[in-house]
């Protein structure tokens, strides 16, 4: 009997190790349900009801309008973040002097509560799409730039000496040595930039917009509409977590090119 339960426990452990995310989701759902029992209907909706409510929202055209609005703003903001972040990071990464001068500004930019800058963005762009995009891009560009810069300076000097020994031109060295060597770290920067741009875009919509998921969230907060707050939050968490998990898997593949993509 005891032996059987010990074997069962070992099987359980092995299953958890094999699918940690699955068990994490189950665990979080349980915690959510318990929290609901503790604080009651005024503050929370139980998991199942939230999912059903979200499914209901997803069948209305108006909700898809909000999603499209947020999606458009986010995609443009992300494009700006990545392009500008890469440009800044590479420009500094290729110029030691410039990197030394400007790196502290980048790091400071990372530690500043950007939400405090939001009124400035609104005053410059006015309420609407450009303000959201700008706010999303402000959040995303700094991590992409920092990671790109760090990636460039982390490339082992021996690779550049090897490139010089093979008489590669400067452009060839950048294209065939620097970029491939720095790619995994740059990709990590883009992954983090993705998350922060999404958060920035949503925050932008919360204050400076009449449309989008952030706006929906903010009006629901004003009306104390728990159902909408929780469904929209759930949707955002699901999208963010799913995309991040996919990007993370790609990140790992870039770091270990030897592992076949089918490996667990």
């Amino acid at each position: 009997m005891a032996l059987a339960s010990a074997a069962g426990a070992r099987m359980m452990r092995r299953t958890i190790y094999a699918h940690p995310s699955l068990f994490l989701v189950i665990g979080l759902l349980c915690l959510w349900q318990i929290a609901f029992w503790l604080v009651g209907r005024d503050a929370l909706l139980p998991p199942l009801e939230t999912i059903l409510y979200l499914a209901g929202l997803l069948q209305t055209a108006r909700f898809w309008g909000h999603i499209a609005e947020t999606g458009t703003a986010f995609v443009i903001a992300l494009a700006i973040s990545v392009v500008a972040g890469l440009a800044i990071g590479l420009a500094l990464g290729l110029n030691r002097m410039a990197a030394e001068v400007f790196e502290p500004f980048l790091l400071a930019g990372n530690s500043v509560p950007k939400i405090a800058l939001y009124p400035i963005v609104l005053l410059i762009f006015g309420i609407g799409m450009p303000a959201k995009i700008a706010f999303g891009a402000i959040h995303g560009v700094v991590p992409v730039a920092i990671f790109t810069l760090t990636a460039c300076s982390n490339v082992p000097p021996i690779l550049f000496r090897a490139a010089a020994a093979m008489r590669l031109t400067r452009w060839d060295t950048i294209r065939s040595v620097l970029l491939p060597a720095a790619l995994p770290d740059i990709f990590s920067g883009i992954r983090i930039g993705f998350s922060l741009t999404l958060i920035g875009t949503i925050l932008g919509e919360m204050f400076g917009s009449q449309r989008g998921l952030g706006y929906l969230l903010m009006t629901a907060i004003g009306l104390q509409n728990i159902q909408v707050i929780m469904s929209v939050t759930l949707l955002l968490v699901l999208v963010a977590a799913t995309v991040n998990t996919l990007l993370l898997a790609q990140d790992r593949r870039l770091r270990n090119p030897a592992t076949p993509s089918q490996a667990p």
Partner: peptide, 12 residues
């Protein structure tokens, strides 16, 4: 995935 989640959404 934690920092991909908009924590502010939990504020209400």
């Amino acid at each position: 995935t934690y920092y991909a989640i908009p924590i502010y959404a939990f504020y209400p």
